[in-house]
Computed example of a mutant assay.
Amino acid sequence: MIHRAVDDEDPDRLYTVTGGRSRAADVDLDLVTLIVSEADPVPGMQSEYVKVLRTCRFPTAVVEVASELGLPVSVVKILLADLLADGRISARHPSTVFRHGSGLPDSEFLKKVLVGLKNI
């Protein structure tokens, strides 16, 4: 049996990081929700918040943020909900780039994809 890093994580640390909470309050974030920093870290900010803000300078999926922080997704969702409530990040699901009802991508979105592919 392979043990992941989370198995070795100190439960007291996770409790402290989330302030004892086990769920994000009224925020619907899934694994592919894109997170973007809207503010810079401030002195005295919890280190996990600082890491999130630095990691999300460009759109980053929730699952990638969790990987970068080395924390369970459930813990990261709580941290993201806090930052979202403070206006320090924005979140959007990738499906919002599609036109309502058509099921086809918006032309502006496709242009951005083309530019991104050319930059690779």
Score class of each variant (00 low, 15 high):
L34M: 10
V63Q: 02
S74T: 04
T60M: 04
V27G: 00
V36H: 12
A25G: 12
T60L: 03
D7E: 15
R92L: 15
G87V: 01
S107E: 13
L117N: 09
F109H: 10
K111G: 12
I78L: 07
P105N: 08
K111E: 13
V32D: 15
V75P: 00
D30N: 14
K77I: 02
A25S: 15
S74E: 06
D10I: 11
F58S: 10
E48F: 03
T33N: 07
N119V: 09
A24I: 03
E108D: 13
L34T: 00
K111T: 15
G101W: 12
L84E: 03
R99A: 07
H3G: 10
V32I: 10
R99C: 06
H100K: 14
S67W: 01
S95D: 15
D10M: 07
G87P: 02
K111W: 10
V63I: 07
A91M: 03
E64Q: 04
G70M: 06
Q46V: 04
D12E: 11
G19Q: 05
I78R: 02
L71M: 09
T60C: 10
H100E: 07
L117I: 15
T55V: 09
L79T: 01
A39S: 09
P59T: 07
I2L: 07
H100M: 09
L114V: 11
I89P: 00
D30S: 12
L83K: 01
A91N: 06
P105L: 06
Q46G: 04
T60E: 02
R23K: 15
P11K: 13
D40V: 11
K77C: 04
Q46N: 02
H93R: 13
R57V: 12
V97C: 01
K51S: 08
F98P: 03
S74L: 08
R92E: 13
S22E: 12
T96P: 03
K51G: 07
V73G: 01
F58L: 06
I2R: 06
R4Q: 12
T55Q: 13
P41D: 06
I120T: 06
E48G: 04
G103I: 03
V113W: 12
L110R: 13
E108C: 07
L80P: 02
G44D: 05
K51L: 09
I120M: 07
E108A: 11
A39Y: 07
E9Y: 07
